[in-house]
Design a protein around this nucleic acid. Sequence first.
DNA 1: CGGCGCCTGTCAACATTCGTTGATCTCAAT
DNA 2: ATTGAGATCAACGAATGTTGACAGGCGCCG
Lengths: 200, 200
Amino acid sequence: MPEALTVRRSASLTRQRILEAAILRFSRSSYEATTLRDIAADVGIDVALVHRSFGSKEELFRQAARVALDDGFQRAVEAPDLGAAMAAHFLQPRLDQALKMVDPLDIVTHSLSSDRANPILRELVQQDFILPLTQRLGCGDELQAALAIACLAGIALLRDVLCIGVLRDASKDQICPMIEKLMHACLAKDCEPQLSEPSS
Amino acid sequence: MPEALTVRRSASLTRQRILEAAILRFSRSSYEATTLRDIAADVGIDVALVHRSFGSKEELFRQAARVALDDGFQRAVEAPDLGAAMAAHFLQPRLDQALKMVDPLDIVTHSLSSDRANPILRELVQQDFILPLTQRLGCGDELQAALAIACLAGIALLRDVLCIGVLRDASKDQICPMIEKLMHACLAKDCEPQLSEPSS
DNA sequence: CGGCGCCTGTCAACATTCGTTGATCTCAAT
DNA sequence: ATTGAGATCAACGAATGTTGACAGGCGCCG
């Protein structure tokens, strides 16, 4: 049964290669700027096969985003020092198994403002980022979690999408402590300190 | 010479109306999703006139972004309590003179990941946000300013573009103090507490 | 061994959309 | 009436997702 030997003409292998190429493309350009023809050319196949393997561009993007994000953040969220772990996870590009260097957030930040990718990313951000972080906090304060994620997304955005110089050039030693401080400010458990709400 | 009486067939007036419609459209959809035909329909004119009035879509977007951002942030940055002023400026939609309600950041956040709008927005963010804030800080730490802007952009993005529920539903009383705390964490003068660097 | 049929992959074309442009029309001022 | 700028019309050219018809190898069954 030469199932594993079927190197040529293997649908699953082709799907895998398409998915990897798609992750790379979607991590570097927006949903709209990334064309199925580009991805097809990377794999060395025809456009039609890309389309037929995933049904539609939207579905390809959805699966690419799911695979790219993987459960990396789930693990980061379980670390003892939450702030440091989140800072590290979002700041150093990750080396995926067979992929090139890809920051897991790139695929999110590069297509945030695309209408088609929008609902997909909303679901993903909600389920894969805000929800686990909320549960980890235990405080039940989803707003804190959302704010923390928003800050990290904003930083990644200005750094990797807008390419703001000072953010790109900052060394890890320089920026990591600031992110940690930020995360601590976001996630500080002041849900009920002693009800010290100054009446404005 | 009835120059001001030329209500009909006035190029400058038409330009103004196109610009207003463009700001509205670009504040609600991405650069690519916004078509010149949409804008033309809003004004009630032909596509060609929109194009001829501004030379190109890119130029229209550039001018729309410039006008939309105005110098609102410049003023916010001069307030005594910087954190509170920035939180207020970015969180409450502003009522522009003749325009509908538009958050000045919307036009930035909605097109962040568009390739065409990217260089325009980078320049804008650098000049109109990071630079003034850096100068206001006086500390010369551009990284702090960039981080603060990044956080605000991220929050606006998750709230207004991704439409994350918990951020959309949060009341101003709920979220404003948290933003202020964040801004203070970003902008805290811990660069040289006792040694004041001579203003360059 | 050999024809059959399925799965993988290709080719060409469609339908649509959008920015852009040149010719043309229309109105107001001279 | 003439002229010139404001405005329109129709069309181009390019790009892209999508689709259907077709080709080629591979296993299956006779």
